[in-house]
Design a protein around this nucleic acid. Structure first.
Length: 487
RNA sequence: CGGGGAGUGGCGCAGUCCGGUAGCGCAUUCGCUUUGGGAGCGAAGGGUCGCAGGUUCAAAUCCUGUCUCCCCGACCA
């Protein structure tokens, strides 16, 4: 078999790129830092979108759309916010081109009176609208989500994991009380956790970010963090309690039941196409992509095998009712009857693309009323009775979904440990994985650890305090926090 | 933005040191034979060698600039 994918243990970065290429998920575009998402990659994102969108609707949210362009003045209204994003904004200064000798050039006459920023996130433009929409407590809460693209001018990019333009959803909510906003923040964090674990089969840890890792303009940033196969952590989603920061910046007040005018409380939360990168790095192997059935664009592929036209005819006649039966059971199935490729090639291709279940049908199967089933995750093959294939496929897809999660869960658990001393920490962090340790809560200590070990505090877990002493300074620590090197 | 590597048909590469008019594998097209793990044979098509200058009779090759990608750092979802 011609190996087109680098082994993971040889070069993890190259492996990731090879999988993205061989699975035809995405490719580099002529524009630095931006990617072309190919149909297969986009189909996975669409499945993610659909599942998340359903969950958002079930929790009372509705979709809306706000502009791509944000007036420069909007960004400067919230001090921390502007500070956080200032260094990575694309700025539009002109509105026209003009023809010159060698093509086109910016028309200096078209300089904009006020420059426009390509949204790095939409808090400001959305809160400008919310000011007009909110007068009374009866107008609250506002529970809006937007599916959009955003741009952050990044130094170093990687397909899906960090691109200058990416697709995401951003939820922006407004509430009458702090309690309600905090509840919303945590509710959406939980939605993300559920989505990651039940659909992506990617176990995550949840918690709150430290001040240095917090979203610019947020009071608290909660996150889901997943551990990749190479032992590095990936921030997979964030949910922010924004307090009244944006309400004050945009003067969004409402008249409460008691007649008082009060600032509203806000949240925002988002996940992006980065999830596709997380999905790849959680399950895939040296043969290519491995997809959880719930997100696979094709869940079952049927590959016919034959030697001649006669066999081809009988195999396809045998395969078509199988296809129909599986399709009618609500499974996304594809019959790969391309004649210009041999079965072996198709096997390799569908493996590279992560199709969870493969059914091979050849003359022998027709003869014996069998089918050959092959699982993508374990690469196990078995000959099964043709009867009841739809139920069997369905059962296997469910099993694959849960096995993928269990495998990833076990790996994460095995690589999560607690250390007491900084010396031990320095040794352990080299091995990758999540490490719990005590931290004194100061920026200085966090920074020192980061500088010396390249590890960051991924999150402060929820739950009761478990006092201890900081592994670095020995000062009091409220609880264990989670460290890792990260993407 | 600093350090390292690399840009040559669609993809992967050789050729670059030592200038002489571009080659290999895969893929593509056609034909025949094939098809239970990336098929074989024969024929054909496809490249101003990332881009822009320069040196030279002559540049993929030497010089200068520039763009892009990959890896490692600093910054971030």
């Amino acid at each position: 078999m011609a190996k087109k994918i680098t082994n993971r243990d040889q070069d993890y970065s190259q492996w990731y790129l090879d999988v993205v290429r061989e699975a035809q998920l995405a490719e580099h575009s002529p524009v630095r830092g931006c990617m072309v998402i190919r149909p297969h990659g986009f189909a996975i994102w669409e499945n993610m979108k659909q599942a998340l969108d359903t969950m958002f609707k079930e929790t009372g949210h509705e979709n809306a759309y706000f502009p791509l362009f944000i007036p420069k003045s909007f960004l400067s209204k919230e001090a921390q916010h502007v500070e956080g994003f200032a260094k990575e904004c694309a700025v539009i200064t002109h509105s026209r081109l003009q023809s010159v000798e060698d093509g086109v050039a910016v028309d200096p006459e078209s300089k904009l009176e006020e420059e426009l920023i390509v949204r790095p996130t939409s808090e400001t433009i959305i809160w400008d609208s919310y000011r007009n929409w909110i007068q009374s407590y009866r107008d609250l809460p506002i529970l809006i989500n937007q599916w959009a693209n955003v741009v952050r001018w990044e130094m170093r990019t990687r397909l899906f994991l960090r691109t200058m333009e990416f697709l995401w959803q951003e939820g922006h909510t407004a509430h009458a009380t702090k309690e309600e906003a905090v509840e919303e923040t945590l509710k959406m964090l939980d939605v993300y956790k559920t989505f990651a674990e039940e659909f992506m089969a990617m176990p995550v840890k949840t918690g709150v970010k430290t001040a240095s890792e917090r979203f610019a303009g947020a009071v608290d940033t909660y996150c889901i963090e997943a551990l990749m196969q190479d032992g590095k952590a990936l921030q997979a989603g964030t949910s922010h309690f924004l307090g009244q920061n944006f309400a004050k910046a945009f003067d969004v007040r409402f008249q409460d039941v008691d007649g008082e005018h009060k600032y509203v409380w806000a949240t925002s939360w988002g996940v992006s196409t980065r999830l596709v990168g997380g999905l790849i790095m959680t399950h895939s192997d040296d043969n290519g992509l491995v997809l959880p059935p719930k997100l696979a664009p094709v869940q079952v592929v049927i590959v016919p095998i034959y030697r001649n036209d006669e066999q081809r005819k009988s195999v396809l006649e045998y395969a078509e009712p199988v296809f129909n039966e599986i399709r009618d059971a609500g499974i996304k199935v594809k019959l790969d009857d391309r004649e210009n490729y041999k079965p072996g090639y198709k096997f390799a291709q569908h493996e590279a693309q992560g199709v969870p279940l493969r059914i091979a049908v050849g003359p022998r199967d027709v003869e014996n009323e069998n089918l050959e089933l092959a699982r993508r995750d374990t690469l196990e093959k078995e000959i099964v009775d043709r009867k009841g294939i739809a139920e069997r496929a369905n059962g296997l897809l469910k099993k694959i979904q849960s096995d993928l999660f269990q495998t990833a869960k076990k790996r994460t658990d095995d690589r999560t440990r607690t250390v007491d001393s900084y010396e031990e920490f320095k040794q352990e962090i080299e091995k990758g994985g999540f490490i719990y340790a005590h931290w004194d809560g100061t920026d200085e200590t966090e920074e020192k650890i980061k500088e010396e070990t390249k590890a960051t505090i991924r999150l402060i877990p929820p739950g009761e305090p478990e006092p201890g002493s900081c592994m670095v300074t020995g000062r009091d620590s409220e609880k264990l926090v989670l460290f890792a090197r990260s993407y």
